[in-house]
């Protein structure tokens, strides 16, 4: 027990000297020293996880501390301010992954509670064909088809709402109300109507993305000034010409905002709908089935697939947005 106290004292003193070291050495050199130190401690922690038992947690704390100092040093690097922005998220990711791995192995956490990342990675690469089939079933067939249909439907209704003021005053409050509701609860009903296959998942996604999209597109279509619309009128432009050349492009920032919100909703809808019944393929089915077998490494692999799909979709939307709404102030660098 006495030894533990000494160890703690040691780390405390270490913290003081790290600060003094950074002040003395300047940013560039401290960053260059901390990076190899960061990697070295990660390797030591991973190697000594089983041998040190509970004490391995101290290695993790030290590792996180060095990571923090490394990022902090990088952030002050005047020569290349962008580097810290790029590196910092990866540093945190490394801290979380290494910490998770070391603690699970050191404390011998049973893998039915929390499998270590290495085991998850093994399961992931070992089951690529299964996971790909699940991805195709849930994301490509269920979520994407519903997403496209729901967004197009919302666009159509939004144009109707825009043309007829009565509809605007009637549908918009209803749409705003519906956008806040737990629409995912319609999943059991829609699964009953459209069967267990991807069609019912697409239907859930349509209902989920429709209202946020509607609200956003209508707000976007209203986002032109009277002066701009008057200009179109002096050109004797028709409603549709005005819509195509002025108001739809002006609505694009709002549309992309809605598209991004609905992209996540689409994935949630498709996965949760599978909890209410599905064929023997699909991300939601795999989560449920693997939970039944307490194969948590498989559940985590499915979550990795869902996370990658969500980030990819978001990334594609961001690129499209930058390309199509380059004129908008929020896109200026």
């Amino acid at each position: 027990m006495h030894w533990v106290c000494q160890e703690r004292e040691f780390f405390w003193l270490g913290g003081l000297s790290v600060r003094r070291f950074r002040e003395a050495m300047g940013t560039t050199i401290s960053a260059m020293v901390f990076l190899p130190l960061f990697v070295l401690i990660a390797l030591i922690a991973l190697a000594r996880a089983e041998a040190d038992g509970g004490m391995a947690i101290l290695w993790v704390v030290l590792f996180a501390y060095i990571g923090w100092q490394f990022v902090d040093a990088l952030a002050g690097w005047a020569e290349a301010p962008g580097v810290a922005r790029l590196v910092a998220p990866f540093a945190l990711g490394a801290v979380v992954l290494v910490g998770w791995e070391v603690i699970v192995r050191a404390l011998d956490v049973p893998s039915v509670i929390l499998p270590p990342p290495s085991q998850i990675a093994g399961t992931f690469t070992g089951n690529l064909p299964t996971l790909w089939a699940d991805f195709v079933q849930t994301i490509l067939k269920g979520a994407m088809s519903g997403y496209v249909i729901g967004c197009l439907l919302a666009l159509g209704v939004a144009i109707l709402v825009d043309r007829y003021d009565f509809l605007r005053r009637g549908l918009l409050p209803v749409g705003n109300f519906m956008a806040a509701l737990p629409i995912v609860g319609t999943a059991p009903i829609l699964v009953m109507w459209f069967g267990f296959d991807w069609q019912s998942k697409a239907a859930v996604v349509v209902v989920m993305v429709f209202f946020p999209m509607l609200v956003n597109i209508v707000a976007g279509l209203a986002d032109t000034s009277a002066m701009q619309r008057d200009l179109m009128r002096t050109y004797s432009a028709s409603y549709w010409q005005t819509l195509r050349t002025l108001r739809l492009p002006a609505a694009l920032p709002f549309v992309f905002n809605g598209l991004k919100v609905s992209a996540t909703l689409a994935l949630i809808g498709a996965i949760v709908a599978e909890f209410f019944g599905s064929p023997t393929v699909g991300l939601g089915f795999r989560i449920n089935a693997s939970l039944g077998q307490l194969a948590l490494d498989m559940v985590w692999s499915v979550i990795v697939v869902a996370a990658v799909a969500g980030s990819l979709l978001y990334g594609v939307l961001t690129v499209l947005e930058r390309w199509l709404t380059f004129w908008h102030p929020s896109q200026r660098r």
Binding site: A84, L283, G284, V299
Partner: peptide
């Protein structure tokens, strides 16, 4: 800010509800 914020934003884009049953 530099390390947590990007993850907080990414976390909005992934269906974390999938974690619920686990």
């Amino acid at each position: 800010d530099l390390s947590v914020m990007p993850w907080a934003i990414i976390s909005q884009t992934i269906p974390i509800v999938a974690l619920a049953p686990m």
